[in-house]
Nucleic acid binder design. Structure first.
Lengths: 233, 233
DNA sequence: CGATAGCGGAATCACCCATTCCGTTTGTGC
DNA sequence: GCACAAACGGAATGGGTGATTCCGCTATCG
């Protein structure tokens, strides 16, 4: 095996004197091309897309994928490294909005739109993940996200614009639901907005009575997030 | 390989005279026990549960499963044969309720509760299914279901109790969303009711403005249902 | 040109699960 | 009890999927 292929793809250079070869031009191109391809494929098919899909999309063979990345997991991490920070930033953006209710609406719309556009993102933010490889500090991330969201919800509660009893932990189930609906109809890629509207209208302060079941408390929330695995149970 | 094992398991009895062997007592028990085990396992884990799970639950070996059923699919069909009729019956029950809005609420609650209780049921009603085996006339079933639901929604629309623009095809995405949320927290098996309430309150006639995106039309609906496959796309 | 980094993609490996096979156990009829 | 086939358990098999590795071939660089 080549041995030191993947890792130092971008580092290279520092060869003592008389380095026999610099680096082939086409090889350099491929790295960039692969990242792009992976981005597209994961966005479209989710993290369970195969490396062959990605290679094909990049117009190369699978071997080349491994010359640029040590494993599938590494690709995913490369792409979705900042996913969580990005989501947290969305919360901050939302907090910057004056109107407490509009802030919440904006948060959901932006975040959902991102996840609708990029299925891999949604799966990354969702926990241990559905693909073989995926895993991560998602419990931590989720907990952080909830903590960050707290002010958004508290502000809305204080302003009386959000339904009684709605808490930040409600976002997990809500995004789970939205996730399931993003790809329902190819002909109708924005269909999810319809159901987000339904949900938001349900979240809004209302005279229609209390919610029938309490939300997840933080412990249950964390538990739910960490065992978030696909199908079987 | 007894040959004629599976099919006639429950028929027996009428042994003229001098039949070599009647049927072993324990064998008869196992059939019933297996059905029960399958019911429980599919309810808990969904249709992707393995036959080994079922065998274990029944306290027998896999071989015995095959002595009672020709294949996994046959088990599924045995158990969920009447699933669709049952769902249609729920619609009829709902139509029997005077109040048009309460009828809709009742329909969703009953149906969702059934699917929450039995994950296999939800998957069966959901289309081609997530497991290797599953498949079926689900497009047809779904179309039938929508047709059957039509009166329920039309009546509510006529009474002005349902939000403008909500149609029977909306049930597909809604149940898809609910499906994703049934098992979120083991500590909180009724959590889904919280989100169903949110959705129902969104569906109710409201002064909060129109929905942002049109629903699936019947064609798109059918398309969506038939390609309802799991993750990857 | 000649050496060789890089390449494509077939072959491997690792899992997973339905289904089949077969030696062993266990009711049954005598 | 006894003989025997029905039933049984569960290991072996077969097919499928997808990540990862290997290797002969090719294109680039000096």
């Amino acid at each position: 095996m080549g041995g030191t292929d993947a890792a130092d793809a971008g580092t290279a250079r520092s060869r003592p004197r008389s380095r026999p070869r610099p680096k082939r031009k086409d090889a350099a191109l491929n790295n960039e091309r692969l990242v792009q391809a992976a981005r597209e494929v994961f966005a479209r098919k989710g993290l369970s897309a195969t490396l062959e899909d990605i290679a094909a999309q990049a117009g190369v063979g699978v071997g080349t994928v491994y010359r640029n990345f040590a494993s599938k997991r590494e690709i995913v991490e490369t792409l979705y490294d900042e996913a969580i920070e990005s989501a947290l930033a969305d919360v901050q953006d939302a907090l910057a909005i004056e109107d407490p209710w509009q802030a919440i609406v904006a948060f959901f719309e932006v975040t959902a739109a991102n996840q609708a556009r990029d299925r891999g993102l949604g799966e990354t933010l969702h926990g241990p993940g559905h693909g073989p490889g995926a895993a991560g500090p998602s419990q931590l991330a989720a907990a952080t996200l909830v903590a960050t969201l707290q002010p958004l919800f508290e502000r809305a509660a204080a302003a009386g614009v959000i339904r009684d009893g709605v808490t930040a932990t409600d976002i997990w189930p809500i995004f789970t639901m939205l996730n399931s609906v993003y790809g329902l109809s190819e002909a109708n890629p924005d269909l999810w907005r319809r159901y987000l509207t339904l949900l938001l209208d349900g979240l809004r302060a209302t005279d229609r009575g209390a919610l029938p079941v309490p939300p997840l408390d933080v412990a249950a929330f964390t538990a739910a997030v960490s065992r978030a695995d696909s199908g079987t149970g």
